[in-house]
């Protein structure tokens, strides 16, 4: 049950999106996010939506996985769209007490909903198509300029790598310990909140013990290989920008231009 977490799950494949450089993917993701919030009318919103759907089709990840990640935020989508629906200005179409439904409110709700969905889809696309190690490598590379401010970029990236690396391991471990305690008759489902929290002790203590043991072992193993931080460290796999990445960048730039033009020449709706 605990293994069903889709958050940040990498799904290996051989698609164009998988092959693109992770640095480029991160930068493009950020520009898409900005773009999503720069679409002010239906034309530009449609353009952004079309592009993101295109990317999703190209990513060769089962659509089911995207739906799964959307399921998590369905409540947030509902609440925000409801709030927006009744906060519009202008002529009310329908009124019930203090609730006023206006045309601008409906537009706004549609925009918010589509934006949140796009946001989730495109960010899940990044985590589905990029392995955690590639992701942290890219973040390390992108944050390198921060070294000027004496920020230990390499150490932060290493911590992220290790943390991400151990998420599945610890989940599996939790699963195992829970099974072991359940096999000894531990009751983790019934009872009130306090009883439930208490019943987690037999799981949490072994989990912490094993996390410390793993940390100790890993530190030892790293020391044995003379790890001493990022200074003078070279990479086995260096990231290179290929023609594909340049194509992605140019394509995104074109879409951005398209959206900006739409925004300028068509009357904004909100």
């Amino acid at each position: 049950m605990i293994r069903d977490v889709t958050l940040g799950q990498f799904i290996p494949s051989n698609s164009i999106i998988h092959k693109a450089d992770p640095r480029v993917k991160i930068v493009l993701l950020i520009s898409f996010i900005v773009l999503i919030f720069c679409a002010f009318n239906f034309m530009s919103l449609a353009l952004v939506t079309a592009m993101i759907l295109g990317i999703i089709i190209l990513s060769d990840v089962p659509v089911k996985m995207y739906f799964k990640s959307l399921k998590v935020i369905i409540v947030i989508i509902l609440i925000t769209s409801m709030l927006n629906m009744f906060y519009g200005t202008g002529e009310p179409i329908w009124q019930f007490g203090f609730l006023k439904l206006t045309l601008s409110g409906i537009y706004r709700a549609v925009f918010v909903t589509v934006r949140i969905i796009l946001l989730i889809l495109i960010s899940s696309c990044l985590t589905f198509t990029t392995s955690p190690t590639d992701l942290t490598d890219a973040i390390e590379r992108l944050m390198k300029p921060l070294k000027v401010f004496h920020i230990k970029v390499h150490e932060i990236a290493m911590m992220m790598t290790i943390a991400l690396r151990f998420v599945p391991t610890l989940l599996e471990e939790t699963d195992k310990i829970m099974s072991a305690q359940k096999a000894r008759g531990a009751d983790m489902e019934s009872g009130g909140l306090i009883k439930k929290v208490k019943s987690m002790t037999p799981v949490l203590i072994p989990l912490f013990v094993s996390a410390f043991r793993r940390a100790y072992d890993l530190a030892m193993a790293m020391e044995c290989r003379c790890y001493q931080g990022g200074d003078g460290r070279t990479r086995m796999k260096t990231l290179h920008i290929h023609r594909l990445d340049i194509f992605c960048i140019v394509f995104t730039a074109l879409v951005i231009t398209g959206v900006v033009l739409c925004d300028i020449f068509i009357v904004p709706i909100i």
Binding site: S179, A180, K182, A183, V209
Partner: peptide, 21 residues
């Protein structure tokens, strides 16, 4: 189902990792 677990006892692999008290 909990009652079944008292009748069918299960010792996992590396059971020492379940000690907690």
């Amino acid at each position: 189902i909990r009652k079944i677990r008292f009748k069918v006892g299960m010792v996992f692999q590396y059971p020492e990792y379940q000690l907690f008290d």
